[in-house]
């Protein structure tokens, strides 16, 4: 593989550059944790205040799609981890292929999410646009769906950014991989896994409450 000896003047070596880039990504992930943290705090406050409403809201979500999406995202993370592991000049086609697979799974996730949104719109469960739910639990259910849409939309936005990152890296790895891209791939993979972990939290908080009661 082409070695990329060029590193910016503030670094003393290639590894110095790459390790700094990785630290940068970890700091960025710390920021992201707090971004979702604020949202999760709001969720827990309202789930504590409206336990029945949240359980009912949760039972109105599509657990089949949610579970399928969890499996899809975990598989994509596996492919990305694999690509990081085998990245080298000889395996550039395989690396690009694995990333392409992860991208396809990411797109499948987004499409399924869209189908799920459509279903909720049909059932009049979209607060602020079309929300019809009567009874004493209506407020809790509405707060649940406000969280549902904001959290999944922000997560989907992160997915789209991640898909863009992986696409750029797949092209670079396929055409002219250099040692520089190893660090890029590593950082992008960290980001992708983070988005994956966020989804695991969201899956547990959105789809699972209230399921055992019915």
């Amino acid at each position: 593989m082409r070695d990329s000896p060029a590193f910016a003047r503030q670094f003393t070596s290639v590894s110095h550059r790459d390790e700094s880039a990785e630290l940068g990504m970890w700091v960025f992930i710390a920021t992201e944790v707090l971004l979702f943290g604020g949202l999760l705090l709001a969720y827990f406050v309202y789930r504590h205040a409206y336990p029945q409403g949240f359980a009912t809201g949760s039972r109105h979500t599509e657990i089949v799609i949610g579970t399928a999406n969890t499996a899809i995202l975990l598989t994509s993370s596996f492919l990305v981890a694999w690509a990081v592991e085998i990245f080298s000049a000889e395996t550039r086609r395989l690396t690009a292929g694995l990333l392409a697979g992860a991208i396809c799974l990411g797109l499948a996730f987004i499409v399924l999410k869209g189908i799920e949104y459509h279903g909720e719109y049909e059932e009049h469960l979209v607060p602020g646009i079309d929300f019809r739910f009567t009874g004493s639990l209506a407020n809790g259910v509405q707060l649940f769906f406000i969280f549902y849409f904001i959290a999944t939309a922000i997560h989907a936005l992160h997915m789209i950014i991640g898909i863009g990152l992986l696409a750029v890296l797949a092209l670079l790895c396929r055409n002219a991989p250099s040692t520089r891209h190893r660090a890029g791939l590593h950082s992008a993979a960290l980001y992708w896994h983070f988005v994956d972990i966020v989804w695991i939290f969201l899956f547990a908080l959105i789809y699972l409450p209230g399921r055992s009661i019915t």
Partner: peptide
Amino acid sequence: VLATPVLAITLVLIAV
């Protein structure tokens, strides 16, 4: 790094 994202999400909630 740790406080600003909380403001960001709060402003998103206001905007929504």
